[in-house]
Design a binder for these strands. Sequence first.
DNA 1: ATTTTAATTGCAAAGCCTTGCAATCACCCC
DNA 2: GGGGTGATTGCAAGGCTTTGCAATTAAAAT
Lengths: 140, 140
Amino acid sequence: MKKTSDIINKLSEQGYRLTPQRMMVLDAIENSEHHISAEEIYAQVIMEYPHLNISTVYRTLELLHRLGLVTETDLGGGRVRYHPADKGHHHHLVCQECGRVIDLDESVTDNLKQVLKRDYNFTPDIRHLALFGTCADCKR
Amino acid sequence: MKKTSDIINKLSEQGYRLTPQRMMVLDAIENSEHHISAEEIYAQVIMEYPHLNISTVYRTLELLHRLGLVTETDLGGGRVRYHPADKGHHHHLVCQECGRVIDLDESVTDNLKQVLKRDYNFTPDIRHLALFGTCADCKR
DNA sequence: ATTTTAATTGCAAAGCCTTGCAATCACCCC
DNA sequence: GGGGTGATTGCAAGGCTTTGCAATTAAAAT
Ligand SMILES: [Mn+2]
Ligand SMILES: [Mn+2]
Ligand SMILES: [Zn+2]
Ligand SMILES: [Zn+2]
């Protein structure tokens, strides 16, 4: 798989060690169909590497997020979820009534980003937003 | 103070009990200069009511937020902060480099809300947004 | 290949927040 | 004012995530 090598190269270039733990956490994220949680990554990796500690998963996620290699979002449900950045950026609407999650194109935030840039010279890091509210079906 | 009575009336009207714990938590929020955290509310109330448990603070905050009487936001720093809804809605930009917090008028999200309404018939509950990024000074 | 060195890990403890449950208490009715 | 009732509380335990520290190990230097 090409994507994983790309991320591995970026880690290596920036002076981070390529530990087996990091490789396996990365693999779990890249091969996940949906947004994956720390606990789910842990459960998956531990099957072939039982020595792994969950704090290493959290630290790896923090690193990959800080380097912009994964996006992080709280879709409700009490745990943060992750997504490979190179699989495309997008956002979500989450209905507080029924729990439905609607996917949004990245472009919905273009106007907001532009206004913040123009009026405040602020560069927002909006890569994976989750907005809560009420969906069409639940609006009585 | 008029504001507190208003909130108390709303609680009462909706059938919620006016317990001393709720009154005191409410007081702490209303009299706070800035966005206040659960721990800070707890520390303040406990001075005159040492029996209070912090889970009551969290449950009261959850109730007030659900009823739209306080807004809730994560400005970073690992704890959620609260603000009375009747003191005016607004949003924040948080610089990830220097920690600076910029206040935004509620209207910056008007366009986004409108688009979500028009294209998805979704009514977002965006009352106190915190957006992270890089401020003007930190941009090299 | 061996040594060196700092980054990384596992472990245990802690921090923030939520939740189940039994005891308490605000409010309604008389 | 004195019950009755269900909402609310305190307490203790648990869930998710972070953090300090000593031991390990990837990678660089020899
Ligand atoms: Mn996503
Ligand atoms: Mn605010
Ligand atoms: Zn819905
Ligand atoms: Zn800054």
